[in-house]
């Protein structure tokens, strides 16, 4: 980040630091870096050739992978025990179903077949909202392309479009939650409820954060503060946005499509 910059080009040029022979080369190299590379203004030095911010974003997303991996694993591990809650949502019956699993596996398997999670999901509806979220990745790419070309009008259009599509997805999720809730699937009423709302809710929070970032970029752009030399900021938000989309593809497949 620029505010964290440690050495400024101009000041180095006018500095009166006594340099010993061995160190002179280093200083010169450093200068060249700074003068040539305006995009990397904030970093006095970049060993890998990527900016610190971009590297940090990749690392952050790497960490996020593990977060979602843990959440998805939780969902999958719990999945074997879901069916019972959807049958009744009644703790006593649920408890007895659990015992069937231990003591009379054939009977348990038979009961499983009768009941299934799938009817609960409205696959066409969620497919549509997933498609909308995927489309927003496209508009995100377009906005980055626009700002790289210095086309500020289109940058704003595509940023707004991305935020709008993201909001549609969120609205769809809220609608879906309310339907589920009205059908008696509550957060604390069953293991399925806990696991489903936690996993998709965590993703929803990530989308919300993304929409806020997009809107912030839009406001900056409207105030004329998102210039071409800040294209990387748009790219970083884009990275995050694409990550959130990819995670949704995984969640959609695992939660909705795999029986």
């Amino acid at each position: 980040m620029s505010e964290d910059q440690t050495v400024k080009g101009e000041e180095m040029e006018t500095s009166e630091v006594p340099v010993t022979d061995t160190q002179e080369t280093a200083t010169v190299i450093e200068h060249a870096d700074l003068v040539d590379d305006h995009d990397d203004h904030g970093d006095h030095h970049s060993s890998l050739g990527v900016s610190n911010m971009k590297l940090a974003m990749w690392l952050f997303l790497g960490s996020e992978c593990l977060l979602f991996a843990a959440l998805i694993s939780t969902y999958l591990l719990s999945k074997a025990n879901f069916i019972t809650e959807l049958v009744a949502g009644n703790p006593t019956v649920v408890a007895s179903m659990q015992k069937f699993k231990d003591f009379a596996p054939e009977k348990y398997a038979e009961m499983l077949e009768k009941q299934s999670v799938e009817p609960i999901f409205d696959i066409p509806f969620t497919s549509a909202s997933s498609f909308i979220l995927l489309m927003s990745s496209l508009t995100m790419v377009l906005s980055h392309k626009a700002i790289s070309n210095g086309d500020y009008r289109n940058t704003r259009v595509w940023l707004a479009a991305t935020a709008f599509l993201g909001s549609i997805f969120l609205a769809g999720q809220v609608y879906e939650f309310s339907i589920f809730f009205s059908e008696g699937i509550t957060f604390n009423g069953s293991l399925f409820g806990s696991a489903f709302y936690t996993l998709t809710g965590f993703h929803g929070i990530h989308v919300t954060g993304g929409v806020i970032m997009l809107l912030a970029l839009l406001i900056l752009s409207l105030r004329g503060k998102l210039q071409r030399d800040r294209a990387e900021t748009v790219e970083l938000v884009g990275l995050y946005w694409h990550f959130v989309d990819i995670v949704w593809v995984l969640i959609f497949t695992i939660v909705y499509l795999i029986p």
């Binding site: 408890a95 007895s96 659990q98 015992k99 069937f100 003591f103 009379a104 009977k107």
Partner: peptide, 11 residues
């Protein structure tokens, strides 16, 4: 005999 009636009683 272990029948359904027993099974409905949790452990």
């Amino acid at each position: 005999v272990v029948d359904e009636k027993d099974e409905e009683l949790p452990l």
